[in-house]
Design a protein around this nucleic acid. Structure first.
Lengths: 349, 349
DNA sequence: TTGTAAGCGTTATCAA
DNA sequence: TTGATAACGCTTACAA
């Protein structure tokens, strides 16, 4: 009795006296059946408690509706929010995501890609940076990169240069006399390099005294130490002058604010600070930090949209080489909070 | 010429003069071939540039190596770290994860489950709470819940009760004269209810004056307002007495610390605070916050391990009902930071 | 150690 | 509008 594990089209067909083909049509093109027959099949599905098998469908149709995602980690809020938004596009496009975390080892990443290909993903969204875009392009599948080196593949990036201009000009408009930029050492091929470029260009054009600090700040304690040093340098550098500091990420901006507040019991008025990312760290800081918000929602949505377009193209023209890479820039949004818009009243209550 | 899209076992077989079976064996049981023949096949794979097709393998073998994950979101650090750790178990167990985000709507969640079943997942890890465990148990597939109602399914939970005891007793040992607990209203069926229970039991046993605040605090601003009110109540309640506050999560604990520091320019000595989760909010707060750390890594690893065990069982005994639910508790770790271990020297530098 | 042949549960191509 | 039949690319008895 308990021979068959799963109810299949064959069972439904037998039960309803239709053919398997007709059952298949019920799912893929129901209007080609009479309403009456649709109902018969629908009832049979209920009665036999049928459950879809998409694996079989994939094998026959070739459409997996899988998209691969390779992302560095989910510890950084930036990445986890991005993945959140990517996964949410399921409602719109129906693609399922196979997610791999890559710590940065290229060979591991290659292995993940092989695994993804074995599952016949229709496209790939990549945020990790271990594998050069040249190599990725040679996979000849639709690929969209987000904020990484993208010379040979399509990509969606934040307009980091514009972001830096927005941040820097805000500090400038608030009459800062000296401007500082704090960042990690960044390769020119990476979109985030625009943050350094934008800062520098703006300062040069406006002829404002400025200085850039580039330090590798891996962990929490190292960052804290470095930022402490940078702060003393800044203080020594420009005592009494109004200082504007553009920090390349909110975490470090927040550490900076904390150092200042712990030292002075409040945020000194001659320090204006702007971070980057609009991460929780900036919102929840003791003095909420002005920041350049990447529109993560837009980045994610556009990335999936672009990928889906490429997937469609790819289906229609299997033999033509994947079309020329498309690069799209998303303008970030400047968010003004207390570290630049000090309300003098707020300090007294 | 360009007829065949993919190189298949048939092609390899033809090329090497073996049968498809032998090619299959090369992948699944290579030792059953002579070394010489292994080499021949390996070379052919190279030459023909063969690429695995796991979809076909799944259909034939029934083993998808897919595990479904339903998780509320990736905005909260707790969830994204959990997913990070879950995905990382790929290295150990090889299971691939199909992840769905569920905002809390039961019907949407049911739909996701149907989709997951259609992809023949071998098991399910569930962190969302929309669907009662009773209904989940009726799916008759291996399921492990993490920190949610789990009456009828296996689960891995933090020992919230112990966590609360650890937090409360720390405040007690620091000679707090009044203890407070701030939390959201929590159903008794949810593991996190243990935080309230533990606090209350400890206070009762030690006969310490205490009070519990239960407020729905959805968004940032609402929380801020509520916490401000709670703070004035606490101040009115016990002026001059040493106050210990156990907050059910680090985000709210951080807001509390910020409110205090902004008011007094420092963290007043008569306030001791302990949070929950060891989230970045606690580490990066202006005064790093003592907290009860859930061992997310352990929770995730144990959840996958338990699930894999159940999957193995399930394979061996398809017909027996899924075995009795197993519940496992993970003890959290108390982390002492500045909000309880004030270093008097640190305040003066 | 290797091969034959029958699945796995769909979709796709022709016909009717 | 419906059906027969051959794919899809692999695994798995059963044989040899």
């Amino acid at each position: 009795m308990a021979r068959k594990q799963n109810v299949t089209f064959a069972d439904i067909a037998k039960y309803t006296n239709f053919s398997k083909t007709t059952i298949s049509r019920y799912f893929n093109n129901p209007d080609s059946l009479t309403e009456k027959n649709q109902k018969i099949i629908a009832d049979a599905l209920e009665k036999l408690n049928y459950q879809e098998n998409k694996v079989a469908r994939i094998l026959a149709s070739g459409q997996t509706e899988f998209v691969g995602v390779i992302i560095p980690n989910l510890f950084l809020h930036y990445y986890s929010e991005m993945l959140d938004r990517i996964l949410s596009t399921y409602e719109t496009f129906g693609y399922k995501f196979l997610v791999f975390l890559s710590n940065g080892d290229a060979d591991t990443e290659r292995q993940y890609i092989q695994e993804l290909l074995a599952y016949k993903i229709e496209g790939l969204i990549i945020l990790s940076h271990a594998i050069p875009s040249m190599e990725l392009a040679n996979l000849h599948i639709p690929i969209v990169a987000i904020e990484r080196e993208d010379a040979h593949i399509s990509s969606i990036n934040t307009d980091n240069y514009m972001g830096a201009i927005q941040a820097t000009s805000l500090l400038y408009r608030h009459n800062c006399e000296v401007l500082f930029h704090i960042n990690n050492p960044t390769a020119k091929s990476i979109p985030a390099y625009g943050r350094i470029e934008g800062f520098e260009d703006f300062c040069r054009e406006q002829q404002i005294p400025h200085r850039i600090f580039l330090h590798e700040m891996k962990d929490q304690t190292a960052s804290q130490e470095h930022l402490k040093e940078i702060l003393s340098e800044i203080e020594a550098d420009s005592p009494g002058r109004k200082k504007g500091i553009f920090v390349s990420n909110d975490t470090h901006a927040s550490i900076l604010v904390n150092l200042l507040v712990r030292k002075y019991g409040k945020l000194p008025e001659d320090y204006l600070i702007v971070g980057f990312d609009d991460s929780p760290a900036s919102r929840n800081a003791i003095f909420p930090i002005s920041t350049v918000a990447q529109q993560i929602d837009v980045l994610a949505t556009e990335a999936v949209k672009l990928l889906v377009e490429q997937i469609e193209e790819h289906k229609n023209s299997k033999h033509t080489p994947v079309s020329e890479p498309v690069h799209k820039m998303i303008t970030p949004v400047l968010i003004r909070r207390e570290t630049t818009e000090r309300d003098p009243l707020a300090e007294n209550d």
